[in-house]
Design a protein around this nucleic acid. Structure first.
Lengths: 259, 259
DNA sequence: GACGATAATCTCATAATACAAGAAAATGTG
DNA sequence: CACATTTTCTTGTATTATGAGATTATCGTC
């Protein structure tokens, strides 16, 4: 049983939070046990969540996430400036190379792909759209973390040092920081077979108004499709695209504030 | 300003409900006006929703839906039995014909595509995944409605009679009911250019345990790709697929309850 | 179609916490 | 660095969320 949420809004959210990749389906009985709510309270919550479409249930079945989620995802696709601003660049890079191009958001202590296009047949990502990925893995995380201001970066690495060690990014905080230096210098990150063997990943940060990184534009490409000399080119193009997405986001902000 | 929600859970949901296709971005000021909450209350809600990732905001920007939505959509894709059970049939039908195949859920008084595959180049649906569609439009809605028990059906049509009239499905409740008879008889619905000119739609209902329709399996195909004789074939195949999806759902229920 | 078993909802007194107003802090801007 | 704006905190008050137990609805079975 998990930490008690202090107010009813958080308690409601707590219900949704137990629906994870490890456990996609819950019965009321299990939820009572897990969340520690009384029977009437739990059923009240379930009724609200079911009526609003966040959860569904069928006879003899536990509850699962419901159609409201699909609807909200549609709305998000139409409203997320990162997705809207980034789409042309996903097209551009996948047109030029046989690769997968991704827009990845920094989200809590994780990163999350919010949109991707692939021009390669056999590309199956182990972190497809919507599946959170640890910050420490691969070029994408590094491309974001490397550009955090020091005062945020150091505590973050401290909190997640185990992950960085496991990913082979260094055994101490200083070692990890050192590894990020070259990323900051080049402006983008490269990873050779770090997430998937035989696949090279490029990633460059996307910034918000305050110049702090909020997302990453990334290209993954099979080693065989990216001969040595092309690597530099791809890196440059990824960096360029990320810069233009940052600019596009900024111009949207001005459109909004200037209305 | 909209109707006041009675409890805080509904009030929280009310915040999410104002994010619609017509209005994808809101400032706190606008939300206060729209929802009638006091400043601290609204900010408390926004903080909760932002911290949990349901909403995001950037400097100088209003709030929009956030990455939690994307994450939940990923989880839904892995847990929704309709999507899981239906996927092979989307593959099968799009493999056989140059068409778009869809899984559509009945959701409130609307219907909602939750998954689709297309094997046709120029197929752009005006109701893609996640965009709610009126029940009265096209074959899909009819394929569901036609199989509702009379005691649910008649009130439903009464409530939404305007829509049915606008869709040309009949001017009175009886006329609409009459139009549904042939659907019930054949087992599936057909529409010729109803939603999109030049496109034929087929749809057959998917049932839950209690034999009441909950979703629809549908195929849309350009008239030119579906010559007269093939029409019957496609209809039969859609009906067959929907039946097998119904069966697959039932067998999943048994797996669950029998654990 | 009635029965028993399970699941979901209702009632109500109690206690908790959500609320608004104003003040304070934080953030962004010239 | 000071101003203006946005966001969060503090507090007393009143609303409403809660859980125990009873009740009703639903389901599966005979």
């Amino acid at each position: 049983m998990r930490k008690k949420a202090v107010n009813s809004l958080e308690r409601l959210q707590a219900v949704l939070e137990v629906f994870t990749e490890d456990r996609l389906e819950w019965t009321p009985e299990e939820l009572m046990e897990e969340l520690g709510y009384s029977r009437p309270t739990l059923y009240r919550y379930l009724k609200i969540l079911k009526d609003s479409g966040f959860l569904t249930s069928m006879p003899n079945t536990g509850f699962t996430l419901g159609p409201r989620v699909v609807e909200m995802d549609y709305l998000l696709r139409k409203s997320d400036n990162l997705i809207l601003s980034g789409a042309p660049y996903l097209q551009k890079l996948t047109g030029r190379y046989e690769c997968t191009a991704l827009l990845v958001r920094w989200y809590g202590e994780k990163i999350l792909c919010v949109d991707s296009i692939s021009s390669s047949r056999e590309a199956i990502s182990s972190y497809p759209r919507g599946r959170p990925m640890p910050l420490s893995r691969g070029a994408i995380g590094r491309s974001i973390v490397a550009f955090l201001p020091r005062r945020n970066l150091v505590p973050l690495i401290n909190r997640t040092l185990d992950d960085w060690q496991a990913a082979g990014a260094g055994d101490t905080v200083d070692a990890v920081l050192d590894g990020l230096k070259s990323v900051r210098k080049k402006g983008y990150a490269v990873a050779h077979g770090e997430v998937t063997p035989g696949v090279v990943g490029f990633a460059a940060p996307i910034f918000d108004a305050g110049q702090s990184p909020i997302a990453s534009f990334s290209v993954t490409i099979a080693q065989e499709h990216a001969p040595g000399p092309a690597l530099e080119d791809i890196g440059r193009e990824v960096l360029l695209a990320a810069g233009e997405i940052t600019a596009a986001l900024a111009s949207h902000r001005h459109r909004v504030s200037g209305r």
